[in-house]
Amino acid sequence: MSVNVFVLLAMGAAVGFLSGMFGVGGGFLITPLLIFYNIPPAIAVATGANQVIASSFSGALAHLKRKTIDFKLGSMLLVGGIVGSTAGAVVFALLRRVGQLDLFISLLYVGLLGAVGGLMLIESVNAIRASRSTAAPTLKKSGQHNWIHRLPFKMRFRASKLFVSVIPVLGIGAGIGFLSAIMGVGGGFIMIPALIYLLKVPTNVVVGTSLFQIIVVSAYTTMIHATTNQTVDIFLALVLMVGGVAGAQYGAKAGQKLRGEQLRALLALLVLAVALRLGFDLFVRPNSLYSLTSLGGLM
């Protein structure tokens, strides 16, 4: 495998810029970009998970200082996350053996990015329209209690001012852990909406708590991939991290100058573009119908 260090640095910086601007980990962009750059998906995913730790850790430190992390909620999410990640790694190894890993990764990305990007675009376009029309925005007050709040095994989370069943908490954690292992993402782009809309976690603690969970699950995922598949490329990860951490600082500054809904619309378009590109590759006849996989070694 021969790659250009400067291309990777630029890639890391670009994703870092976007992640700083939009406040996301960027794993969902790094992994597809690496795949577009002909890095084998198995390595792209494992290395992406490693890179996510760096950008999330950087962000989490700020939240730690501001005390906007709910450690109890984060820990419960983690319990689910570890289970999900373990299951994900088993599925990952299995798919790799039968030669369907690349397909599965692409399908998951297309499905998830397509759905998240589409929803975000609709929401942000509506918000932009609402702000342009003079009519006062009608805030849809969601019911204080939905079906999730009627589930048993309730637990109190003081920092989040929540009294909620642990079932959805474990479920969300497990789902995101699973995706983290297979897609090499932190899962922030799914976790944040899930915490806000499903569990009604206050917005100020959502990001910090999500980052805390992402760091630990990504670290765990990195560990699993390193030990079972040997697919973590430390050089690749380091170059991406350096680019990413630097890019994130400038992204955050640029993000402050843009309005929220415009920012969201931009991110939605970006997410949709990545989904389209990955989806396109699935339907286009490949150059060669045949592919080779060497067993017992990566190189």
Binding site: I53, F57, T222, T227, V232, M241, A248
Partner: peptide, 15 residues
């Protein structure tokens, strides 16, 4: 794996 994680945290912190 431990080293890879440590390296990532160090990079994030240095950043």
């Amino acid at each position: 794996g431990v080293f890879a994680i440590g390296l990532a945290m160090l990079t994030g912190w240095l950043g």
